[in-house]
Design a protein around this nucleic acid. Structure first.
Lengths: 206, 206, 206, 206
DNA sequence: ACCAACGGGACAGCCCGTTCCT
DNA sequence: AGGAACGGGCTGTCCCGTTGGT
C-alpha cells in the first residue's frame, strides 16, 4: 500500500496501447498510423506510450510479435500441430476461414500481409520480423504435408516446401483480392478453389 | 525574376511527371510518396505539376490509368486475346513472368497489387479505378478459359470465373510473398506451382 | 477585315474581367480574392488578365475607379446634384436605400466600405483612391446641406462638414452592422434612425 | 536534439499566444494573419501553438472571446451597468473614447468591427460569436436607455432598441471612417455628432 | 488580344519525439 | 507510471506572376 499515484497495472496499459496500435495500423497501415489517434483511442498520453515503447517503429514490431503472432498461431499453427490427418485439417482450416470471415475481415485484410506489403521493402527490421513469422507459417504447413506423406494421406511426388509456399501465397492473394473487391462472396469462392488445390495433393482413394 | 520559358512539349512534361510519380509510388506507396521527391527527380517545379494535375490523388489515379493499365494490358491481356490455344498461352505468360522477373521486380512487387492493398480500404475513387482494372484482368482470363473449353483444351467441369479469380489472386499472392521474402528463387518456385494448377485445368490427353 | 484571330472587342474582355473581379472582391475581400476564380468565372486565361492589368493591385484599384465609383455616383451623388430641396432629397435617398436593399445586399455589405476597412491600413495607394471617393461622397452631402441652408431648408447652426461626415459614417455603420447580424429588418430600423437624424437638421416649420 | 524544457506556466504561454494573435489579427485581419508571424513575435514554436489551439480558426475565436470581449466589457458595458444617470454615462463614454483614441487606435480601427466586416459573410461560427458580442453591446445600451427613461432622463417616445442599434452602428461607422481617412481629428468631430444624437434623446430641461 | 505552360514561394496543418514534473 | 507542454520539421495545397508563342 501507499505505492504513490502511478498506475498499478502497467501491463494493462501496455496491452491497451498494443491493442489500439494494432487496430490503427490494421486500418491505415504502419506509416499512416497516427500516434495521436492511438492516444486518443486509449485516453492515454504521450508519456505513457513513450514510457513503454522507445519509438513508433518499436511499437509496430511489438504489435507484430505480441498481437499478430499469437492470433496467427492459434488460428493456423496449433490446429495442424498434432492433427492425425494433417491434410484434412489444413483443408478444414481453409474452410473455417471462409466461413468465419465477415465484411470487416474482408475490408481490412490480413494484418500480416498488409504489413509485409507495406514495410518489407522499406525497413529491414520489419522485414526480418515479418519474414520470420511468415516462415513459421510455411514451416507449419510443410510439416503438416510431410506428416501427411508418412501417414499415407499426401501423394509422394508432392514438393512439400513449394506447395506450402504456394498455399500461403495463394491464401494471402485471396485475402488481398477480396479486400480490393470488397466482396465476401468472391473471397469464399476463391478459397474454395484453394481448398480444391489442397485436395489435389491427396492420394487418390483406391 | 523568372528566367523560364514555356515548354513546347507539354505532353512530354506530363509524361515525365507520370513516370516519376509511378516510380515514387511504386517505391514508397501512394501516401508516403513525396511530391517534392517527384519534383526533384524530374527537375520540374510545383507550378508545372499543379498545372497538369489538380492534386496528388488525381496524379495517383492518372498513374493507374495511364501508366499501370497499359503495361498490364500489354503483358497480360493482349497475349491471351487471339491465342489459338488459350490455356497454353496462359501457362506461357506465367512462365514468362517467372523468367523475366529480377531482383528489382521482386523487391517492389506488383504496382497494381501494392496500390490495391494500400488504397482500397481508404479511398473509394482509388478502389473503383483499381477494381475495374482488376476485373478486366479476371475477365481476360475468364475469356481465355471459356475459349479453351470450346477448343477442347479446358475441362468441361471447370468453373471459369472462379478459376480465373483464383489464378489472379494466387499470382498476386506469389508476388507479394516473394516481395516479403525478397527472394527471386521462391518466386519462381511459387509460380511453378501456379503453372501446375493451370495445367490441372487441361483435359487429360487420351 | 482579315484582322487576324485576336478578339475584336478588347474592351468587352476588360469589362468582363472588371465585373468578375468586382464580384469576387465583394464576396471575399481583396486579399482573399482569387485570380484563378476570376479567370474561371469569366472563362478567360491569365494572359488575358495580365494583358489588361499589370498586377492584382492595379486590377483592384481599377475596380474601385471603374466599377464602384460610377454606381456610387449614380445612387448617391447625382440625385443630390440639382435637387431643389437637397435635405429632402437626402432623406429620400436613405429611404430608397432602405427599400431597395435585400438579403444579398445585406449579406455582402457596401463594396466601398468593405475595401476601406480591409485595405486602408495596408496599402497607401488603395487608401488614396478609396479616400478620394469617400471624400467626394462627403462633399456631395456637404454641398447639399450648404445649398439647403441657402434655401432655408437646413438650420443655420448646423456644422455642414461634420454633419456630412457623420451621415456617411453612420450609413456605413448601419450597413456593416446589418451585415454582421445578417438582418434586413434591423438594417431598415437603423436607417430609420439615421433618417430621423437627417430630419433633425431641418428648420422647424413655423 | 531538442534542448527545451516544459513551461511551468502554460497559462502564460496561452496568454502570450492570444495577445500576439490579437495584435496580428488586428493589423492584418484574420485571413491574412500569419501563424508564422505570431510564432516569431512570441518566440514560440508550432508545437506550442498547436498544443493550445487545434487550428487557426479556434485561435481566432478564442481571441474574440478571451481578448476582445473583456476589453469591450470593461470599456463599454461596465460603466453603464450601475450608472445613476445612464444617458449621461453613455455620453461620457463616447467623449472618453474621443479623448483617449490616438493615431494607432485610428489606424487599426475597432477589432470587433474589423472581424465582423471580414468574417461574418465567410464563416458561420465567427458570425455567431461576433454577433453575440455585438448583441450584448446593444443590450447594454438598451438597458441604459430604459433605465434612463425610468429615471426621467430619457424621453418617453424614444425607441430604446432602435436607438441603441443606431448608436452602436454609428459609433462603428465613425471608427471605420476615421480609419480610412487616417484622421484622428475627423474621428473626434464625428463622435461629437454622435454625442449630439445621444443628447437629443434627453428630456428637455424645464 | 489572348493563351498554355511553368516558376517559385508561402501558408496551415500535422506529426513524432523529448523534457520536466508528479 | 503517466501526463502536460513544447520543439522543429515536413507535406500538400495554392497562389501570383512571367514567358514564349499564336
Amino acid at each position: 500500500m501507499s505505492e504513490s499515484s502511478p498506475n498499478k497495472q502497467p501491463d494493462l496499459t501496455r496491452h491497451t496501447l498494443l491493442e489500439a496500435a494494432f487496430a490503427e495500423i490494421h486500418r491505415h497501415g504502419f506509416q499512416a498510423a497516427s500516434i495521436k489517434q492511438i492516444l486518443t483511442d486509449t485516453g492515454l498520453s504521450k508519456g505513457a506510450l513513450y514510457h513503454h515503447f522507445p519509438d513508433k517503429k518499436t511499437l509496430g514490431i511489438a504489435v507484430v510479435e505480441e498481437r499478430v503472432r499469437p492470433v496467427l498461431a492459434a488460428l493456423m499453427f496449433e490446429p495442424l500441430r498434432d492433427a492425425p490427418e494433417p491434410l484434412t485439417a489444413l483443408r478444414e482450416i481453409i474452410r473455417a476461414k471462409a466461413r468465419t470471415t465477415d465484411a470487416l475481415g474482408v475490408e481490412l485484410g490480413c494484418p500480416l500481409n498488409n504489413l509485409m506489403q507495406e514495410m518489407s521493402p522499406l525497413d529491414e527490421d520489419f522485414r526480418r520480423h515479418l519474414g520470420e513469422l511468415f516462415e513459421e507459417w510455411v514451416a507449419a504447413i510443410s510439416d503438416a504435408l510431410r506428416r501427411g506423406k508418412l501417414a499415407g494421406e499426401v501423394r509422394g511426388d508432392v514438393n512439400v516446401r513449394e506447395s506450402a509456399l504456394f498455399i500461403v501465397s495463394a491464401l494471402e492473394g485471396c485475402v488481398g483480392m477480396s479486400k480490393n473487391l470488397q466482396s465476401v462472396k468472391t473471397f469464399k469462392s476463391c478459397l474454395a478453389q484453394l481448398a480444391g488445390f489442397v485436395e489435389s495433393l491427396r492420394i487418390a482413394p483406391a
